[in-house]
Amino acid sequence: MVVKSVIIRPELCVGCMQCMIRCAEAHSESGVLALAVSEAVLAKPRIHIGVGPELRPFPNKCRHCEPAPCQEACMPGAIRSDIAEGLKIVDMARCIGCGMCGMVCPYFAIRYYPAAQVAGHGAVAIKCDGCHERVARGQVPACVEACVTGALAFEDVNRHMNAGVNRLANAALGVTA
C-alpha cells in the first residue's frame, strides 16, 4: 500500500493563504466556508504561511515525525498515533493545553486555541491531522485541494523523490524536460 503524505515545495508558494482558509473551513463544525466564519468558536488553520527569507512565503505544517517529540512530551497521551496510519493526531478530549508539545516541536507547527469540538475546555493544541477523515472518504487534504500552484501536493514520498531525481539529472545533463 502506498502511503501518501502532503509534500511541500515552498519555492512554488505565492503566499495566497488559500491553504490556511480551506484548512480552517475543513476543520470547522459546518465544513462550509460561508457558515464556518460565523460559528461560535471559530476553527483555526493547521497550516501556516510563515514569512521566509526576503519576505518569501513558506508553507509550514506538522511533519508527523516518527518518533515525534510532541508525542513524547505529551503527558496525558493526547497526541495519538493509533487514529490514522502515519499521523500524529491530537485527541482534543484528552488535551489539557499545557503547552509541552509546543515546547518541543522544532517546526512551529502547533498552536493553542479553543476548539468547538471541546467547547468550554480552554485552549487546546491545534495541529495538522492530515485530514484523515477526508482522506478516508477518498478526498485529498484540504490544503492540497486549495493549492493552485502545486506548492502542496498529496503524493507518495518515494514517487516524489524520483521526480526530484529526474529533474536533477535533467538539469545536470542540460536537458529541459
Binding site: E11, L12, G50, G52, P53, E54, Y107
Partner: peptide, 24 residues
Amino acid sequence: HWRRAPLSAAPLAARTEWLAKAAG
C-alpha cells in the same frame, strides 16, 4: 527574516536556504 517577525516567521528548522534558489 526570523528576527523581523519572530511571531510569524517560517521556522528555523525549515530548510529555507533553498527557497532562494530558482524553482525546478
